[in-house]
Write a protein that binds this DNA or RNA. Structure first.
Lengths: 336, 336
DNA sequence: ATATTCTGTGAGAGCGCTCTCATACCGGTT
DNA sequence: AACCGGTATGAGAGCGCTCTCACAGAATAT
């Protein structure tokens, strides 16, 4: 706000009306006579007036802003195309509204900055993506303003009665595993994600379900961390322990890519020797050869839905359900 | 700001001092007696007081926020690991400060929302990444608040005397091309990025420089758009026009990946038949086999420097230079 | 004609903070 | 004892907006 910026007051003077009337026009109140609306709008254009956000927020107690909380190592967050899509969905939902998005990548410190930000009335609500099991302070944070989680917060945070959007991780993992069995594979392993994240545990559970239902050995499990390198390492581990493995369900595409490299280095052909299925259908699944068979989740829809749900809450409407679960589909490419 | 939230006034009452004194303590003014500081801090803790941001902004005319302008198709922006790194660098620089980052992904509409946001005093400064030739309105926007560009805005926008951080695109391209020549290649083509972006033109210029200096044919040029698919298409085009090509400098890693797939499909071995060099050393260069030889630019440093420069401006200090150029290094892997 | 309801507009009191300026009080000079 | 400069504190005027309430004047009902 550089000095000289026009204010409501100045517009009012220019249009020959009161401040209140200009405010009404700016906010689209219906009870202003057409001529006055016209005069005011002319003055607004003439002065190039733009309402001051801080003043508005202060007076109306509405920030018209939403925080995106990323309780995650920032490098990892940005490296994963999945998150990119979620953010994309969020921005797309917010685009036609007056809300703006504030990025809060949480400090490793006890999130003082974040807490101050939320409690300071800078935002009306928050969106949480990528939460982990030790994120106890998220519990506190989610009490400060209306919050929608991306992914089930009950599993890892023990938070009940929260609003969240999730994908059908269990169902997706089941479908992938069933597909591998249908292909005739029997010695099927899995590479999990970071086990402090709900998506990892849910996907593992889906795999395990199907394996035991089919009467197959469900102990060929190696733990990864959702990164490509972690996937490569876990695959190596799995291969060492179960050299006769003939298929692997990997909990995300990034790790599947790492696994692919490990398998190649070990001289295993994919899918002839070992079939591989990833999860996400992110950018990491396409544009790589061989094309990765994977479980598609609509990450941008996830972001979109989260924002949509929060908008409902902020509008004072109670969403129909506190939970939205998005479907997954198996996308067949070359690796399985 | 739910009702019942403690205010400065309430803290003052609790501590038995005036509002002004509490304000001094909160803002770390040195001229408050130690006992009073203590009493006030106790009251702050007792009431769980957090200053209201809007009120602060209104009174001090400082938003303590920075806008990140992304004048780009949002999908493309997020799909490129390069941008992810830039954003990462920005958040890292901002982390220890009191500034927060506001994400403004520009609408396709004439950016009314963005303009209102900047002019509304919501932010103290702006960072622009990924600008294009046609972005005339950025010129206007960058006049509203102090702005630092990521990448030279003179080339595409004709903006002089702006603050910007860029990488040595020309130098990087030259190094890559020289390396190909050193390898004994002579029929060297290039796949450019989107020609409405400065990075694309600069990298092409670097390639062309070296080619003509070496007396080689510099007409094997195909235009891509910085996406993987675009790279694949451009490579196909190049191959059709110049079947005897023995090396390609591709203007970013994403396109190089696409080119790699095209080359594979055409039965060319990399690097035996065709050597390939990308640009960025992003996530798209590693974790793919064969490993991509590429020009490394420190994208996170770029983001960091942009934020750093803006912070200087906001502190009222004139940065030593209006321009910071970051170096590039050639990273040798398998494709060249 | 008078009473009643509407409808558009203005006055003015905040929202929670910052910051200038005035003031009370201190010890030290002369 | 009167004076001074220095320092910690308080009073109070905004910052630019929203929103309630009161109030003219027109429209409607009695």
């Amino acid at each position: 706000m550089t000095p000289g910026t026009p204010t409501l007051e100045m517009v009012a003077a220019a249009a020959g009306v009161s401040r209140a009337t200009v405010s009404r026009v700016v906010n689209g109140s219906p009870k202003v006579s057409p001529q006055v609306v016209d005069a005011v709008n002319r003055a607004i254009v003439a002065l190039n007036y733009v309402p001051n956000r801080a003043a508005r927020t202060l007076a109306s107690r509405q920030a018209m802003a939403i925080a995106l909380l990323v309780p995650e190592d920032i490098g990892r967050f940005y490296a994963d195309p999945y998150f990119a899509s979620v953010v994309k969905g969020i921005t797309e939902r917010l685009e036609p509204t007056d809300y703006v998005l504030n990025l809060l990548v949480s400090s490793s410190d006890p999130r003082h900055k974040t807490r101050r930000y939320l409690a300071g009335g800078s935002v009306d609500g928050a969106l949480v993506v990528s939460h982990h099991a030790g994120d106890r302070d998220l519990i506190e944070l989610s009490d400060i303003v209306p919050t929608v989680f991306g992914g089930d917060p009950t599993t890892m945070l023990g938070l009940r009665d929260r609003f969240y959007v999730d994908v059908d991780n269990v169902g997706g993992a089941r479908a992938a595993t069933r597909h591998l069995i249908r292909l005739g594979r029997r010695r099927i392993g899995t590479v999990t994600g970071a086990m402090d994240m709900h998506a990892a545990t849910h996907r593992l559970a889906g795999w395990r379900d199907v394996m035991s239902e089919a009467g197959l050995d469900d102990t060929a499990v190696a733990h990864g961390d959702f990164t490509s390198y972690g996937g490569a390492d876990a695959m190596r581990d799995l291969l060492a322990r179960r050299p006769d493995i003939d298929a692997v369900f990997v909990a995300n595409d990034l790790m599947a890519r790492g696994a692919l490299i490990t398998l190649g280095a070990a001289g295993r052909r994919v899918p002839e020797d070992v079939a591989l299925i990833g999860f996400d259908d992110s950018f990491a699944a396409t544009n790589v050869s061989p094309g990765l068979t994977t479980v598609r989740q609509a990450a941008d829809t996830m972001g979109w839905s989260m924002a949509d749900m929060l908008l409902e809450l902020l509008a004072g409407r109670e969403p129909e359900t506190r939970t939205r679960i998005l479907p997954t589909t198996l996308v067949l490419r070359e690796t399985a």
